[in-house]
C-alpha cells in the first residue's frame, strides 16, 4: 500500500515528458500544473467542477483537473493544452474564431479534441452532450460550434 503525507515528490507524465514536483497530497492537479510546473494553460475558474476551464486529458479522457488530486495521477498520461501543439482542433478554433476572451478556450479545445478523437463522425446530440461540460461566459458558442465542425472536416480530409 502506498502512503504519502507531508511534502512528497511525485513523478507525473505530462505531455509525453516526465515531470517531478514537490506536492502535498491535498494539492489538486490543477494547482500543481499551474503553480509547480508552470503549465498555466489549464485555467482556474470555479474550482468546483462546473465551468470546465481546467479541463485536461487523463489517459485520453477529458477530466476537470480541479477535482482530482495530483497524487492520484501518478502512472497516468496527462495532456494539457501546451501538449497539443498545433492540433487540428486548435487550428479550427483559431480559423473559426472559436473564442472571445479566451479563458475557457484551453478546456474547450481539449474536450473538443477528445470528442473528435472518440467520435470522428458528426452527431449533434453527442456534440452537445460532450461540450456541455464547458462553459463560455462570453457566450461564444456559435464560433465554438463552427470550430468543432471545421475540426471534423480537417480530421476527415485525406
Amino acid at each position: 500500500m502506498k502512503e504519502l503525507s507531508g511534502i512528497v515528490e511525485i513523478v507525473l507524465r505530462i505531455n509525453g515528458e516526465e515531470r517531478r514536483a514537490a506536492v502535498r497530497p491535498g494539492d489538486t492537479l490543477l494547482r500543481v500544473l499551474r503553480e509547480k510546473l508552470g503549465l498555466t494553460g489549464a485555467k482556474c475558474g470555479c474550482e468546483n467542477g462546473d465551468c470546465g476551464a481546467c479541463t485536461v486529458l487523463l489517459d485520453g479522457k477529458p477530466v476537470k483537473s480541479c477535482m482530482l488530486l495530483a497524487v492520484e495521477c501518478e502512472d497516468a498520461a496527462v495532456t494539457t493544452i501546451e501538449g497539443l501543439r498545433d492540433h487540428p482542433v486548435q487550428q479550427a478554433f483559431a480559423e473559426e474564431n472559436g473564442f472571445q476572451c479566451g479563458f475557457c478556450t484551453p478546456g474547450m479545445i481539449l474536450n473538443a479534441a477528445a470528442l473528435v478523437e472518440a467520435h470522428p463522425e458528426s452527431d449533434d446530440a453527442t456534440d452537445r452532450e460532450w461540450m456541455q461540460s464547458n462553459l463560455c461566459r462570453c457566450t461564444g458558442y456559435e464560433g465554438i460550434r463552427n470550430a468543432l465542425a471545421a475540426a471534423r472536416r480537417k480530421a476527415a480530409a485525406p
Binding site: 500500500m1 502506498k2 502512503e3 504519502l4 503525507s5 507531508g6 502535498r24 497530497p25 491535498g26 494539492d27 489538486t28 494547482r31 474550482e47 488530486l69 497524487v71
Partner: peptide, 21 residues
C-alpha cells in the same frame, strides 16, 4: 486546493483499505 494537510493512502486490496481506515 485543499488547505488541510491530508495523508494519501492507496491500498491494493479491500482489506488493506478498511485497515487503513
Amino acid at each position: 486546493m485543499i488547505a488541510a494537510d491530508v495523508a494519501y493512502l492507496r491500498p491494493d486490496t479491500a482489506e488493506e483499505a478498511v485497515d487503513a481506515w
